[in-house]
Design a protein around this nucleic acid. Structure first.
Length: 519
RNA sequence: GGGCUUGUAGCUCAGCCAGGUAGAGCAAUCGGCUCUUAACCGAUAGGUCGAGGGUUCGAAUCCCUCCAAGCCCGCCA
């Protein structure tokens, strides 16, 4: 059984389930963060498929303070460190706030992936006073909460610690105030900026609960029954350990069911950190991979498995694997036993509806070659039709899908592809020097090519026929052909490649090269 | 130090959560027009399932111990 179904089976069917996720929009949201939402979405879908009533909520932690000036931020953001993300200006100026800047691109990605949670902003929840009762309970129980934190995490908290981060009314920071005196409903405080004042905790937005208290408070607030979280929170003494006790003992709420997911590593570079520039954002990922393939990556791996994500050549393998699974799903290819939960994984990988028939597939690797011959969709379509890879009449959905993939491949080529898969068809005969032998071979080749049917196999065979007749090494002939077309010694598989370029182009180029080299 | 995960063919992994005679791809070997690029086809071979113990009629699968690796333990998923 698929892991998402295994989890869903454990739900109490008589109770509406509330599946929650939360991510802090403090920078570009990367594909590692995406795993959390995708995991939740899979469980949500599985629950609904079982007939369990369920809600799916996403809470943006936009009331969290900015921790530091990340490398992708201008230096003058120093002055915003400590302020809630929702109250810091947008880096590009186009959004309501810093948080919204990153949030909007993330929400757009969710849409593409077919994930539709109810979206809440922590800043609004705080400002509207939704947390009021929970804040009161927390402050009333400061001593007990402190004790739990110290017992579970083993670290000592300051004597006068309160489970509340005050937002200084003067400088707007959440991180620099110290409570002097708490007497319901007022907290007197002093801030590093020199300001002294008092806040009324009954008013919204005057501060926030620290993470370890905020989390369980949120479970209570929304009635959360299930939540996936990363292994960092699951470490012994971590926020899950404190959270479940605070939830039970302070808020009198049973901690939700959960699943711990592993991190996604960037192949060869370790964990992703936006702050270290080793992250691939969700948005970028979706520009180079179809959404169903990104979902597939998450769905085919149990949450407990590490995922090594390779944005280089590995992306081609991933798409190929997806396509293969798709063929097996539609019975076009014999299903391999080793592929676990094939059907379910495929279904859960679909952002929206499941296709009713096998979509037209063009191997991704092949597209990598085609788009480098021409970047224009209409031209690409012509080439694919001419080579019999797609029918002349494409159904609209297939056309959209293919077109989208072409865009993905182009983005990938420009940003992530290794140099060795790249080439450029020169519009003019490049200035190259070939040997006497190669020239002779090209003459023979021209002769052979003029009289064959223009198919990949024939073209490939022609090279060897040519090698035989001209007495030139086949390798040198390959090189010569690449040279006159690409200006380099290597290129994509030659038979297919020449077939794609078309007879007219190839014959003209051959004649030109012969003429030029002879003169 | 604590937590979690992983350890199955030379390599990458599936199978484990519902115990019932070990699976795939790549690599290798052999063969098929001298068939280049992480892109041909067919066949063959290849594993005491990390080690030890336990439960069971039966264990890769469940339980315990140990060994090794990876990651996480400053509110970074």
């Amino acid at each position: 059984m698929h892991w998402a179904d295994v989890i869903a089976y454990r739900f109490d069917r008589d109770v509406e389930q509330v599946i929650a996720t939360g991510i802090t929009p403090s920078g570009p949201i990367h594909i590692g963060n995406m795993r959390e939402v995708l995991t939740a979405d899979a469980v949500y879908r599985a629950a609904k498929d079982l007939g369990v009533k369920a809600r799916f909520i996403y809470i943006a932690d936009d009331f969290d303070p900015l921790r530091k000036v990340y490398p992708f931020l201008p230096d003058h953001y120093e002055k915003y460190v400590g302020m809630p993300l929702s109250e810091i200006p947008c880096p590009c100026g186009g959004h309501r706030s810093y948080a919204d800047h990153y949030l909007s691109s993330f929400l757009q990605s969710l849409k593409e992936l077919g994930i539709k949670p109810e979206v809440y902003r922590a800043s609004e929840l705080y400002i509207k006073g939704k947390y009021r009762d929970l804040i009161c309970i927390s402050l009333e129980n400061s001593g007990r909460i402190k004790k739990i934190m110290e017992e579970v995490s083993g670290r000592a908290l300051p004597k006068d610690w309160l489970p509340f981060n005050i937002k200084c009314e003067n400088c707007g920071r959440l991180t620099s105030s110290k409570a002097l005196l708490y007497e319901y409903p007022l907290i007197e405080y002093e801030c590093d900026c020199g300001y002294q004042g008092e806040i009324d905790i009954r008013k919204g937005g005057v501060g926030k609960l620290p993470w370890r208290v905020d989390w369980p408070a949120r479970w209570k607030l929304f009635g959360v029954t299930f939540e996936p979280f990363g292994k960092d929170h699951a470490a012994a003494g971590g926020s899950w350990d404190t959270g479940k006790r605070i939830s039970k003992e302070i808020f009198n709420y049973p901690p939700p069911m959960h699943v711990v997911y592993e991190f996604i590593q960037l192949k060869g570079k370790g964990a992703m950190h936006s702050s270290k520039g080793t992250a691939v954002s969700a948005e970028e990922m979706l520009r180079m991979t179809p959404p169903e393939v990104l979902r597939f990556l998450i769905m085919k791996n149990k949450p407990s498995k590490h995922i090594d994500f390779d944005p280089g050549i590995g992306i081609l393998d991933l798409v190929d694997e997806y396509d293969k699974e798709e063929r097996m799903y539609f019975g076009e290819e014999e299903a391999e036993r080793r592929i676990k939960d094939l059907k379910r994984t495929y279904e859960l990988s679909q952002p929206y509806e499941i296709p009713d028939k096998l979509p037209i597939q063009v191997p991704y690797r092949h597209l990598v070659t085609v788009v480098q011959i021409t970047r224009k969709w209409e031209e690409i379509k012509k080439i694919l039709i001419r080579n019999g890879q797609i029918p002349e009449e494409l159904d609209k959905r297939d056309e959209e899908r293919l077109k989208k993939r072409v865009e993905n491949v182009l983005y990938w080529l420009d940003r992530f592809a290794p140099e060795k898969v790249k080439f450029e068809v020169k519009e003019e005969l490049p200035k190259i020097s070939i040997t006497e032998d190669q020239l002779n071979a090209l003459k023979v080749l021209e002769n052979i090519l003029a009289n064959i049917e223009w198919t990949p196999e024939n073209l490939h065979d022609a090279i060897y026929k040519c090698a035989e007749r001209s007495g030139t090494n086949a390798k040198d002939i390959f090189s010569a052909v690449y040279l006159i077309i690409l200006g380099q010694k290597h290129g994509p598989r030659l038979g297919y490649f020449l077939a794609l370029l078309g007879k007219d182009f190839v014959m003209n180029r051959l004649r030109e090269a012969i003429k030029y080299s002879t003169s």
